[in-house]
Amino acid sequence: MAGKKEEANIKAYSQNFTTMTPGPFAKKMRTCVIFQIIRFIIINLKMLVVVSKSH
Protein backbone atom coordinates (compact mmCIF):
# COMPACT_ATOMS: atom_id res chain seq x y z
CA MET A 1 0.00 0.00 0.00
CA ALA A 2 1.67 3.18 -1.21
CA GLY A 3 -0.91 5.60 0.24
CA LYS A 4 -0.21 7.90 3.17
CA LYS A 5 -1.51 6.83 6.58
CA GLU A 6 -2.79 10.34 7.39
CA GLU A 7 -5.08 10.35 4.35
CA ALA A 8 -6.54 6.89 4.86
CA ASN A 9 -9.64 8.11 6.73
CA ILE A 10 -10.86 10.11 3.71
CA LYS A 11 -13.48 8.26 1.68
CA ALA A 12 -14.21 9.32 -1.90
CA TYR A 13 -17.43 11.30 -2.18
CA SER A 14 -18.29 10.77 1.49
CA GLN A 15 -18.94 13.72 3.82
CA ASN A 16 -15.22 14.04 4.61
CA PHE A 17 -13.95 14.06 0.99
CA THR A 18 -13.84 17.86 0.73
CA THR A 19 -11.91 18.73 3.87
CA MET A 20 -8.21 19.24 4.47
CA THR A 21 -6.13 16.74 6.37
CA PRO A 22 -2.85 17.28 8.18
CA GLY A 23 0.30 15.53 7.01
CA PRO A 24 2.90 13.93 9.29
CA PHE A 25 4.86 17.17 9.74
CA ALA A 26 1.81 19.20 10.82
CA LYS A 27 0.84 16.43 13.25
CA LYS A 28 4.35 16.11 14.66
CA MET A 29 4.54 19.83 15.33
CA ARG A 30 1.37 19.69 17.43
CA THR A 31 3.14 17.78 20.15
CA CYS A 32 6.75 18.92 19.49
CA VAL A 33 7.62 20.35 22.91
CA ILE A 34 10.07 23.05 21.73
CA PHE A 35 7.68 24.31 19.04
CA GLN A 36 4.74 24.17 21.44
CA ILE A 37 6.58 26.21 24.09
CA ILE A 38 6.92 28.94 21.48
CA ARG A 39 3.26 28.55 20.49
CA PHE A 40 2.31 28.64 24.19
CA ILE A 41 3.87 32.08 24.54
CA ILE A 42 2.34 33.36 21.29
CA ILE A 43 -1.18 32.01 22.03
CA ASN A 44 -1.09 33.50 25.53
CA LEU A 45 -0.09 36.90 24.17
CA LYS A 46 -2.85 36.75 21.55
CA MET A 47 -5.40 35.75 24.18
CA LEU A 48 -4.28 38.55 26.50
CA VAL A 49 -4.91 41.07 23.71
CA VAL A 50 -8.46 39.75 23.21
CA VAL A 51 -9.06 39.66 26.98
CA SER A 52 -7.85 43.25 27.33
CA LYS A 53 -10.15 44.36 24.47
CA SER A 54 -13.10 42.74 26.25
CA HIS A 55 -12.88 44.18 29.78
Binding site: M29, R30, T31, C32, V33, Q36, I37, R39, F40, I43, N44, K46, M47, V49, V50, K53
Partner: peptide
Protein backbone atom coordinates in the same frame (compact mmCIF):
# COMPACT_ATOMS: atom_id res chain seq x y z
CA UNK B 1 -6.99 40.07 13.42
CA UNK B 2 -8.36 38.93 16.79
CA UNK B 3 -10.13 35.71 15.78
CA UNK B 4 -7.74 32.80 15.52
CA UNK B 5 -7.39 29.16 16.46
CA UNK B 6 -4.87 26.35 16.45
CA UNK B 7 -4.67 22.86 17.85
CA UNK B 8 -1.71 21.54 19.77
CA UNK B 9 -0.06 20.66 23.04
CA UNK B 10 0.25 24.35 23.98
CA UNK B 11 -3.56 24.57 24.02
CA UNK B 12 -3.68 21.63 26.42
CA UNK B 13 -1.15 23.26 28.74
CA UNK B 14 -3.23 26.46 28.71
Amino acid sequence: DYTFGEIGLAGHWI
